[in-house]
Design a protein around this nucleic acid. Sequence first.
RNA 1: GCUUUUAUAGCUCAGUUGGUAGAGUGCCACCUUGGUAAGGUGGAGGUCACGGGUUCAAUUCCCGUUAAAAGCCCCA
Length: 643
Amino acid sequence: MINIKLKDGSKLEIQEGMTILDVAKKISEGLARVATCGEVNGEVKDLRYEIKEDCELVIDTFDSNLNGKKAYWHTTSHIMAQAVRRLFPDAKFAIGPSIDEGFYYDFDVEKPFSDEDKAKIEEEMKKIIKEDLPIERFSLSKDEALKLMEGQPYKQELIEELPEGEEISFYKQGDFTDLCAGPHLMSTGKIKAIKILTSSGAYWRGSEKNKMLQRIYAISFPKASQLQEHLDFLEEVKQRDHRKIGKDLEIFMTHKLVGSGLPMYLPNGATIRRILERYIQDKEISLGYEHVYTPSLANVDLYKTSGHWDHYKEDMFPVMKMDNEEMVLRPMNCPHHMLIYKNKMHSYRDLPIRIGELAHDFRYESSGSVCGLERVRQMCQNDAHLFVRPDQIKEEVGKVLNLIVEVYQKDFGFPESAFQYRLSLRDKNNKEKYIDNDEMWETAESQLREILKELNIDFYEAEGEAAFYGPKIDIQIKTALNHDVTIPTCQLDFALPERFELEYIGEDGKAHRPVVIHRAILGSSDRFISFLLEETKGMLPLWIAPVQVKILPITDNQHQYSYDLKEKFVAEGIRVEVDDRNEKTGYKIREAQLQKIPYMLIVGEKEVETNTLSVRSREGGDLGTRRIDEFLEEIKKKIENKK
RNA sequence: GCUUUUAUAGCUCAGUUGGUAGAGUGCCACCUUGGUAAGGUGGAGGUCACGGGUUCAAUUCCCGUUAAAAGCCCCA
């Protein structure tokens, strides 16, 4: 049963079995306001859920803020805080919100939590659950609240920042009271299966200038089986980590002698990269792009001219001083492409001009954020700069978005759920991070928004995610490690054309300033491959698989037949290997299967006699006997169709 | 960069309360010539990441460096 007390004091009782959506329909006004305003400003005064053990926990059909999971996890976070209070009486409490999967709580304690500490906390939490303490809500004035939180500097800091005159809510369970906006369950006994997952340091209020607190991540469920399912899921996700797949399938390696964030592509990985890079360049050529090569090393003045130096020099590799020159490894390619544009005079008729390059860039990513192929210190960007007239912005951005859809959805067939479109805006409260030109920002941001809407693309907006020179449309994915990263991006830039004084001659015979669109479709080859590995779990699509076909002779009587076959396939451009080792067929199949090779061709006496093949696929097992030509045509067609 | 943790054979990992190490797998050889996910026997692989310190003695304890993992910060 769900109890909802409205501001006027009346109570609304909801029948068991109703979803939160039903509830929302019933009193949609009130609930909707709670969803956006929290409990204080909305009409709904106090929203608390009671979740029956056998009740469906997921109620995210309506709004994540009204999610039953969140109330459940948030309640568990208070239980964790209470357990920490009991075991570590000197601990100072920061915040303990629910997150997408579970919750965390930040504590200021003498020493980081050890594994034993965490086990003890978990035990204590179970005790608190058993005590089934009722959870009470009450409100105080600011002064009273500050007094109650005596000795809790973080809580007091939070209270100080609340608007004057507002009543401040607390939740109390037994001997523990916490500043909290709710909502919560009715009592601690409603929580069933709990698990502390990890702990680590986290800065107070997310700023490295502040003290580092100790954060404990945990999760809870109404049923032990749900907890087990979740733990199994986490384990499964680990198996999908591109670093593991990359090692297992011999795609890339790293070596400490080379350095952190500097992966080396093994032959399999190099094949994947070559195919991807040729693919995207061919695609670009068909769309009117022109490719260039520019150096990875440049005079530091180039970046002073572009403005990158002021904004990002800490993230660049340090300057190399030569006789009279100061050189840097480039962190991006925009300045080079600006100069290429400037190399000659352009007519308005020439635009758009699309300059592309598979370019190596170097960024001094902090050691803690380097990660496999996902975050590296040298990467290969699938970069391009489109020089357009202001009246061409919409069409060109539209074309870029269409290209993204064609690549990701049509050719690769990634599910739409794999990525999200993000309109990345500047942070209006932190303007010094961005080029100073309010009008430009307003125009550019609304133009991008319009294009997204016109193309009917679902997107969300994120302030503070823009580039310093302009807003972007980023395509965000969630990695196996739950990192939120950008792969394709499309950025509007009114600033660099100004900086480099780019011009074209308009119909009126006068000089005009073009607009630049920065875009990357694969993002970087490196990050794209990490995504591809995780998304496919290593089952690379046939057209990309480093080895597409493996021929497995049963005995050495079939070796010559196998070599002849190989030649035939190679002549057709198929990547093929013969496993002529002295091993049994089952063994060879197992190995090819673990390498996730799309097709295994088993050839024994029977096949040699009839001039055929016995085909096995990594997904479907034995596909039966085929004629050679027939099979060749079949896979050639599949490669052509991609996906 | 910060907090914590970790580093033993090509890979996955045991182990040593301080006396220089082991399994599985892979690799090599031999036997086995086999039909859709692991045939048998034997062998070769390790200054226990690197540099210091403590100690009669360090792979083990301490400090530092490098690299990796989780989270935080950052991400043009």
